[in-house]
Simulated assay, not measured.
Amino acid sequence: MITVERSFVVGLPLDELVAYLEDFSRTEDWDPGTVRCVRLDAGPVRPGARWRNTSRFRGRITHLEYRLVTREPSRLLFVGENKTVTATDDLGFEAESASLTRLNYRASLRFKGLARIAAPFLRAEFEHLGDEVAERLPTAAAAQRRT
């Protein structure tokens, strides 16, 4: 398994940041690997909501179906799956002030079958993606406030 963790401050109040990130289709804005992410069901976002995420990694396109597992005032947990991997995005939130929130971001990938062999060789690339998320997400989240 590969786990990447980043902690950074975002210029939004905690409740606004959670509201922004609970809609997983917004990964298009801040996740460098996501090409497209579409909600598969309707209604309010709550545990059980599902998205189809299309990502590009190492030149290949992959599809995962994500679901929101946990939606708490200071935590979101998404789990995505396909035949070769289970991906978990665990987002924890801490108010730094009335207008700033610390996001503790943890992405874990558990490879299945023969794909498990490649996992140790992919860690550096996933660490790089984690750096890009930490760079892009604060800007994307703040931009949504202006729209």
Results as ranks from 00 to 15, higher is better:
S25N: 03
S25T: 14
T27V: 13
T27M: 08
E28T: 14
E28Y: 00
D29S: 12
D29W: 05
W30N: 07
D31R: 06
P32F: 10
G33W: 01
G33A: 13
G33Q: 15
R36E: 09
V38A: 12
V38I: 14
V38F: 00
R39I: 03
R39H: 02
L40K: 11
L40W: 06
L40H: 04
D41C: 08
D41H: 05
D41S: 09
A42G: 09
A42Q: 07
A42E: 15
A42I: 00
A42N: 03
G43T: 10
P44N: 04
V45Y: 07
V45F: 02
V45I: 15
V45N: 04
V45D: 06
R46L: 08
P47K: 09
G48Q: 10
A49I: 06
A49V: 03
R50W: 04
R50T: 13
W51A: 02
W51H: 05
N53I: 01
N53A: 10
N53Q: 14
N53Y: 01
S55A: 13
S55V: 11
R56Q: 08
R56D: 06
F57T: 08
F57Y: 12
R58G: 01
R58T: 02
R58K: 10
G59R: 07
G59Y: 00
G59K: 02
R60A: 13
R60K: 13
R60N: 02
I61W: 02
I61Q: 05
I61L: 11
T62N: 12
T62I: 07
H63P: 00
L64H: 04
Y66F: 15
R67P: 01
L68I: 01
L68F: 03
T70A: 14
T70L: 13
T70F: 00
R71D: 05
E72D: 12
E72A: 15
P73D: 06
P73K: 10
R75V: 02
L76N: 06
L77K: 06
L77W: 04
L77V: 15
L77C: 10
F78H: 03
V79E: 08
V79T: 07
V79K: 04
G80F: 02
E81C: 09
E81P: 01
N82R: 05
K83S: 09
T86H: 08
T86D: 03
T86C: 09
A87N: 09
A87T: 13
T88W: 06
D89A: 13
D89C: 08
D89Q: 11
D90K: 08
L91Q: 12
G92S: 15
F93C: 08
E94D: 15
A95D: 12
S97A: 09
S97D: 14
S97H: 13
A98Y: 00
A98H: 11
A98T: 01
S99W: 04
S99D: 15
S99E: 14
S99G: 10
L100C: 11
T101D: 07
T101H: 03
T101R: 05
T101I: 11
T101M: 05
T101E: 07
L103K: 07
N104E: 14
A107E: 12
A107P: 00
A107Y: 11
S108E: 04
L109C: 06
L109Y: 14
R110C: 03
F111E: 06
F111I: 08
F111H: 08
F111L: 08
K112G: 09
K112L: 11
K112Q: 11
K112V: 04
K112I: 05
G113C: 12
G113M: 09
G113Q: 06
G113K: 09
L114C: 02
L114I: 13
A115W: 07
